[in-house]
Computed example of a mutant assay.
Amino acid sequence: MCGRFAVTLPPDAMAQLFGAAPANDLPEAPNFNVCPTTQIHVVRSGDTGRQLVSMRWGFLPHWYKSPTDGPLLINARAETIAQKPAFRTACRERRCLIPATGFYEWTKDAQGNRLPWYIHPADNAPLVMAGVWQIWDKGETRTTSCAIVTTGANRPMSDIHHRMPVVLRPEDCGKWLGEEGPGAATLMRAAPDDFLAFHRVDTAVNSNRASGPDLIEPV
C-alpha cells in the first residue's frame, strides 16, 4: 500500500514537468509528510489540456453520504480496480498522476516497534504514481478526491511490504492519462527491481504531525 509520502518539488516546477496549467488553490510544498485526507497535488487531463489541481487523498464513492460514511479509500488495488464498484468507472474515465519525491513504508522489529523506511527513485528523479479520481457531490458539499493505484511489490520492495504504488515512467504518463488511446491496463505492474532505493528513517515520521526535511534523512 502507500499510506504516507513526501513531495519536495514546488508547484510551478510540477506544472512545468508535466506541461500542466496550475490551479490557484494548490497545497503548499515541500511537504515531507503527506497524510491521507489532506489535499495533494494531482495532474489530470481535460478538454483544455493537462491541469495541476488539488484533490483530497481518500477516494469518495458516490454512494457515501459523508466523507466518513465508509472505509478510507486511499489506495486502489490494480488487480481488482476494474471490477470494484468504487473504482471501475474512474479506472476507465478518470485516471491521474500523483507527483511525489518518495513514500514511506514500515516494518516491525522483534518487539513490535514500527520502523519507517523512505522509498524513492534510485536516480532521485521525481516519482510519479498512478491514480484515479472523481467528484463527490452531496448538496452544498463538492469534493474532488483520489486514490493511489497499487500493485504487488517487486523483489527488493517485498522485504519491506508486499504492496507498492504503480509507478509511471515519463513516457507512460500520456497513456495512463488516456491521451494516447487504450493500453493503460498494461502499466499496472511493479516497477523494475532496480528502479527504487530505500533507507531507514527516524521514527519521528510515525506521527502524522511530524514535518521537515529531516524526516527523509537516513538513520
Rank of each mutant, 00 (worst) to 15 (best):
V166S: 00
T37M: 08
K138S: 12
T8S: 15
T107K: 10
A190P: 02
T37D: 13
R209D: 12
P116E: 07
Y104H: 06
F5N: 02
G139V: 13
R95Y: 07
L73M: 15
Q83S: 15
N31F: 04
W133K: 03
A153L: 06
L127G: 06
P213Y: 10
C173M: 14
G131E: 00
L60H: 00
R50N: 08
R88Y: 06
R92N: 10
A153G: 04
I135F: 10
S145F: 02
P85G: 07
V167G: 02
W106P: 06
Q111L: 07
L196E: 02
G102F: 01
R95T: 05
W106C: 10
L17E: 08
A21W: 06
K65G: 12
T101Y: 03
R95I: 05
Q39H: 10
A76H: 00
D202E: 13
A110F: 08
P10A: 07
V201N: 02
N33A: 10
I98K: 00
P61K: 07
W176Y: 08
V34C: 03
K108R: 15
Y64E: 08
I216W: 00
P165G: 05
A76P: 01
A23L: 03
T48Q: 13
A210N: 09
G112H: 11
P85H: 09
S45L: 12
H161T: 06
H41L: 14
S66A: 10
D123R: 15
Q111V: 07
G102H: 03
I119H: 04
P36H: 12
C91T: 12
N113G: 11
C96D: 02
W133A: 04
G102M: 01
K138I: 14
T143H: 04
A78M: 05
Q134I: 06
D47I: 11
C173N: 11
R200T: 13
D193S: 15
E217K: 15
K84M: 14
W117E: 00
P99F: 00
S54E: 02
L73S: 01
I160S: 05
A100D: 05
M164R: 02
V132P: 03
E105K: 07
E105D: 12
G19C: 09
I98H: 02
P27F: 01
M55W: 03
A82C: 08
K65A: 11
I81T: 07
R114A: 14
A76N: 03
D202I: 14
I160V: 14
S45H: 13
M188F: 09
